[in-house]
Every structure is written in C-alpha cells, then in structure tokens.
Amino acid sequence: MSLKKIFTLISITLCCIVQAQTLHLYGGSNQDQYLGCLNCDTFDKNSIWNAYSDYGNAFGSKSIWNTHGNYGSSYSTYSPWSNYASYPPAIVDQDGNFFGYLTLNAYKSERSELELAQILCQYHDAIRTDINGWYNKLFR
C-alpha cells in the first residue's frame, strides 16, 4: 500500500475517532506542566500544530518540537522522544480522562495506544520539520 493511501486511511480514522474529543498533553514529573492540545487545529493558540504558539513553536520552552528543550529533546526524561524518559507527557481529554503517555520508551507502563500517539512517535523527526504539512496529512 502506498504512503499516500496509508495517510488517507489514517486521516479518515483520526477525523472520526480523535476529533470527537479534545486531547491535551501535560508534562513534568507531576504532569502539571501544560504542553498543548494534541488534536486542535493549526489556528488554535494551544495547538502543538500551530508553529506560532508556545506549544507548536520549534523554539518554545513548552514545545515537544523543540529539540533542545526539556519536552522535545531526545535525551530529556520529560520528552516523548527519549527512549529512556521517566516522565513523558500524559495525554488527557478535557474531562481529565487519561489516554496513556506519549513516549518512545518501550518500557514505560501505560504507554498510549492511540493511533495518533503511535504516528507521532514513529514520525516525530519528520513531523517537526514540516508541522503544518503533517497536520494536513493527518487531519484534513
């Protein structure tokens, strides 16, 4: 199956399942640091897909896309992109329901099984170089 067909199927699935609820990321050792909205659109000020927001900016201190920050570095214990993170971001909905941790750490219990989380983990390096393009592939 071609990559384009895979993205089309993923997009349809995500639009139908994930868009039904707003998902947020919380990081830090107590998951008390807000890190943005996981499935909000690119115009939302809290969206990780908004390159001009605190959470979608590649240089933002609260952005999972900042390769030098606590929440985006592949070496940080708070980053989803660290294979050894002890405190990766938690995914919760607007009602506080927990959907697991966004993490590459295969040994972290309660790793998220959401399809969106798995896509982010698999393609995070590519996504951070074209956030808007990936948003369009995944949600449009």
Score class of each variant (00 low, 15 high):
113 E>V: 11
88 P>R: 05
126 A>K: 13
41 D>G: 12
22 T>I: 00
75 Y>F: 15
118 Q>I: 08
53 S>C: 15
96 G>Q: 15
118 Q>A: 13
93 D>N: 12
94 Q>P: 03
36 G>S: 08
44 D>Q: 11
30 N>Y: 13
136 N>D: 09
21 Q>N: 10
131 I>Y: 01
77 T>V: 11
77 T>N: 09
22 T>A: 11
35 L>Q: 05
93 D>W: 02
87 Y>E: 08
59 F>T: 15
138 L>K: 06
6 I>M: 07
132 N>T: 08
77 T>Y: 04
59 F>V: 13
118 Q>N: 13
41 D>C: 02
98 F>P: 07
86 S>D: 11
25 L>P: 13
48 I>A: 05
42 T>H: 02
111 R>W: 09
129 T>Q: 10
61 S>V: 12
86 S>H: 11
106 A>G: 06
116 L>C: 04
117 A>G: 06
126 A>C: 15
31 Q>M: 02
61 S>G: 02
96 G>V: 07
137 K>N: 07
29 S>H: 15
127 I>N: 07
133 G>L: 05
28 G>V: 08
66 N>G: 07
31 Q>F: 05
9 L>E: 14
20 A>V: 01
71 Y>M: 08
56 G>T: 08
3 L>Q: 14
3 L>S: 01
39 N>V: 03
98 F>Q: 01
120 L>F: 15
92 V>R: 12
95 D>H: 00
25 L>I: 05
110 E>A: 11
113 E>R: 11
